[in-house]
Design a protein around this nucleic acid. Structure first.
Length: 837
RNA sequence: GCCGGGGUGUCGAAAUUGGCAAACGAUCGGGACUUAAAAUCCCGCGUCCUGUAAAGGACUUGAGGGUUCGAGUCCCUCCCCCGGCACCA
């Protein structure tokens, strides 16, 4: 490398040291300035970061630095989502204790963040795996428990028979175990849940308040909550006292219900099939369906199967006796687990009815062409006219829907109701590396929550991780290649499980499950305001001052779970009076992925690009510039090593502005016009960059505007020493300031070289002047019949008549109009003239 | 299947929201500088046609239609890609 290149190695280090020393990113709690809370999603400390991860932090850093320059009191904290399965799995494989590997990873990542020039208020660092943090995660659990929002129930979970463990949904791949590919089974286990469904409607309603969230995230959450309105109808079982309630959104089709179906898990199934004479066959069928159910969830539209129970139910609107079936296509978790089947108007019921030769009756007719049940190839699901529906005949089905619902409520047959797809949040994990659930079980008193003063319930450090049973002393590996235990490893830690009952002081056992890490991350943004506080989870006055977060930045992969859970927890805390706001994040920005060779960067695919090597070769600012210039930050982008070269060239080009600034002078020829153009360009660029920073974060176009200004400077100047130009000096000053949020190291260095004694981040963000942007001569296009034929230069204040005069005296125009006067003349101020001939 | 986002040069992408399509960058080509190369600076670069040239013209934003003086942008029909959800009754 020759001396011609800018010395990024010294510069990067110099300024990174100085920012740290000056505490550029340390929030001043006493500052009178307006607050700005800029939050990056805290990362899981896995292995080293690649450039795809880097994008998130670089985008955030640009926002933080820009807001600092706009004189906000900026809070930009960082921490670690440090509990979780990967560290524990790594421990099983390698024998390194999760705590050790986690803090090793944190060290590496911190170093990487620093090498990017990404700044945070490290005085507020938190790690969710440390007792002074998870103490308060446990505290939050206790609050939910007291409010009845945390409860324990039996639930079906994914079970791998080979690994002998519970798997998270995300670990089930095509119905098989992620690790060993064995078929996953459903298993019923006692599990802890948080009652997020109580908040379904509010979580849905308040999405409307989140105007500065991306549309797609809001719709994803709305779909996930999945509200649907309908009617719950009671069907009496023939010759029995049992009533079966079923939920439908299509009550207009009730007269076409020709059978009813139950889910295999339906609780009353045993009672219903007793004495059917066919019990064994039915039981066998139910067993098969249950076994399949976990695996099938990932395989859409599998073959529908069912079995007749021997029972009948009565359709309450027409008294008809219809058969009761059990089928694999009904799920227990939604609605009531019982469904009225209308084969003529529901595709699933249609397929099932055809297979088992159940009757199909049309009750909504196609207004275009009358339907005949025997000839139908698929269910008719469109709107139409009511037929075969008694008193409701000839109504439109949409009217009938309302009228039938009203009728049912009057007659006491059914009631209007709302269902949600959202389920309660299963937080139990039969795992070690998580926050212990603060509950004890006493033989005498039963289940009790731990008293607040006894928190935290510490996670023991010495545990057996794997089935092979090797013990792992901290820091040294001995076990390897084992399998996770079927139960939480905490079960075998005597010092942990033996506890005293908070009620009778007698012997009790602790809950051995730990919490889902999403609980840890659902409140961390509150902790940053008072990270060391040992008395309370967060400071009410401080969080009320600083939240909602002004700008949250992270990956779209958290669109549903993390963002929904955080909203839920904040709403609970709001209801309990702990916080004064009901939504945690005012503005959300989700950045796109960086892909390489068409695939998401990942270690297993081997297509990651290491930032460390690039920074070593080109410096932090080149990597930042390229990452920001690659495309709009919310969109996915393909990484190209060649593009990095372009960024590098640009920075050197900028650097040379300073190196030779003493000899930068205006060229004589056409100098006047050039200088006025430069002046215009300076103000145009300030405007463009400022707008891009405040708006949709389109840093790529902001940067291209700065590049244009730099190009303009080169065009105006030459190396021959002549008269100095104040415009050139100003242009260079503006370039340096505007570039500072993006490429801070080189900007600081150039700022210093320009003779400034303080940091560029203390400089005034330049303001643009409207009067410079309003030029008196403008070029407008002249169209004839919508095609641009020529351009004319006119006075920007010219009246329509004056414009017309200029246009009609133009030679090219006359050539095209053939001298005829146009039928129509459209003038768009400042843009163009269109003549219609 | 439903919901959301897309489809523009060789490539990454722009386009003031209905007003000059392709800014900026990459690639490629040419020139200057150099003994030479690299670096740098300058110029060119959508496709086709006429022309020796200077010029000039036609076409062009996934496909087809429509609205409009004017459409990448709005409307209708269709195709393809990406993401989310999915026997949700």
């Amino acid at each position: 490398m020759t001396q011609d290149f800018y010395p990024f190695k010294e510069i990067d280090k110099k300024w990174q040291d100085r920012w740290e020393k000056q505490g550029l990113f340390t929030m001043d709690p006493d500052s009178p300035k307006k607050k700005y809370y800029c939050l990056m999603m805290f990362p899981y400390p896995s292995s080293a970061l690649h450039v795809g991860h880097g994008r998130n932090y670089i985008i955030g850093d640009v926002v933080v630095r820009y807001k600092i320059m706009r004189k906000y009191n900026v809070l930009a904290p960082m921490g670690w989502d440090a509990f979780g399965l990967p560290a524990e799995n790594a421990a099983i494989k390698s024998g390194i204790h999760p705590k050790v590997s986690t803090f090793n990873n944190i060290r590496t990542m911190k170093k990487q963040l620093r090498s990017w020039g990404v700044g945070y208020d490290w005085t507020r660092e938190i790690a969710s795996c440390l007792p002074d943090y998870y103490k308060w995660t446990q505290w939050i659990f206790l609050q939910l428990y007291e409010k009845g929002l945390a409860y324990k129930k039996k639930a079906s979970v994914n079970w791998c028979p080979s690994c002998q463990t519970v798997l998270a949904n995300e670990q089930v791949v095509n119905g098989g175990c992620e690790r060993c590919s064995a078929q996953v089974e459903g298993r019923n286990l006692e599990q802890w849940f948080l009652r997020i469904t109580d908040y379904a409607q509010r979580l849905l309603n308040d999405l409307k308040l989140l105007k500065d969230w991306p549309e797609r995230v809001r719709t994803m959450q709305a779909n996930w909550i999945g509200r649907s309105e309908g009617v719950e109808i009671n069907f009496k079982v023939f010759d029995s006292d049992i009533n079966l309630a079923c939920f439908t959104t299509r009550v207009d089709t009730i007269f076409g219900a020709t059978y009813m179906v139950l889910a295999a898990e339906y609780p009353l199934v045993d009672d219903l099939i007793k004495g059917s004479g066919n019990e064994n066959e039915i039981r066998k069928f139910i067993g098969e369906v249950k076994k399949d159910s976990a695996a099938d969830r990932t395989v859409p539209n599998i073959e529908k199967k069912g079995v007749f129970t021997g029972r009948f139910v009565i359709n309450p609107v027409n008294g008809r006796k219809i058969p009761l079936w059990i089928a694999n296509y009904v799920v227990m978790g939604y609605g009531t687990g019982a469904v009225m089947a209308v084969p003529a108007h529901d595709q699933r019921d249609f397929e099932f009815a055809r297979k088992y030769r159940l009757p199909i009756e049309v009750v909504i007719d196609d207004p275009e062409e009358s339907l005949v049940a025997e000839n139908m190839k698929e269910a008719y699901v469109e709107n139409g006219v009511m037929v075969n529906s008694g008193q409701f005949n000839s109504l439109s089905n949409t009217d009938a829907m309302r009228k039938i619902a009203d009728y049912m409520e009057r007659e006491g047959i059914g009631r209007k109701t709302v269902h949600y797809k959202l389920r309660d949040w299963l937080i139990s994990r039969q795992r070690y590396w998580g926050a212990p659930i603060p509950i004890v079980y006493c033989d005498k008193c039963g289940m009790s929550p731990v008293r607040e003063k006894d928190l935290p319930i510490l996670l023991p450090e010495k545990v057996k991780f794997s089935g092979k049973g090797a013990r792992l002393p901290e820091g040294q590996g001995s076990a390897s290649g084992g399998k996770p235990c079927a139960e939480s490893p905490l079960k075998h830690v005597k010092s942990f499980i033996n506890a005293k009952c908070p009620k009778c002081n007698g012997k009790a056992k602790r809950e051995i499950d730990t919490m889902d890490t999403f609980v840890d991350s659902s409140w961390y943004f509150l902790r940053y305001l008072s990270p060391g506080d040992n008395e309370k989870p967060f400071d009410k006055a401080l969080v009320n001052k600083w939240l909602p977060v002004d700008q949250y930045i992270g990956g779209v992969e958290h669109a549903i779970l993390h963002l929904m859970y955080s909203r839920f927890i904040v709403k609970v805390l709001y209801d309990m009076g702990y916080v004064g706001f009901s939504e945690p994040f005012a503005r959300l920005f989700t950045q796109g992925m960086i892909v390489k060779d068409g695939a998401k960067m990942s270690k297993s695919k081997g297509n990651t690009v290491s930032p460390d090597k690039l920074i070593d070769k080109y410096g932090a600012d080149t990597v930042r510039l390229y990452t920001l210039f690659i495309g709009p930050p919310e969109k996915d982008a393909e990484w190209s090593d060649r593009g990095v070269e372009g960024a590098w060239r640009f920075l050197n080009r900028v650097w040379r502005l300073i190196d030779r600034r003493s000899s930068f002078v205006v060229r004589d020829s056409q100098s006047k016009g050039r200088v006025s153009k430069l002046k215009y360009k300076i103000h145009y660029t300030i405007k463009k960059v400022s707008e891009d920073m405040e708006g949709a974060f389109h840093f790529n176009t902001a940067l291209s505007a700065i590049m244009e200004l730099v190009n303009e400077i080169y065009l105006v100047s030459s190396s021959e020493p002549r008269a100095r130009s104040p415009e050139l000096k100003e242009a260079i000053r503006v370039v340096v300031i505007l570039l500072a949020p993006f490429v801070p190291h080189i900007a600081e260095e150039m700022w210093e070289k320009l003779g400034n004694k303080t940091s560029v981040f203390e400089a005034e963000w330049p303001a643009y002047q409207e009067d410079v942007l309003a030029r008196n001569k403008i070029t407008i296009a002249v169209q004839i019949n919508g095609r641009v034929r020529t351009k004319i230069e006119i006075d920007s204040a010219a009246s329509e008549d004056e414009i017309k005069k200029t246009v009609f005296s133009n030679e090219t125009v006359n050539k095209w109009t053939d001298g005829k006067s146009p039928r129509k003349c459209i003038i768009v101020k400042g843009r163009l003239v269109n003549l219609v001939v």
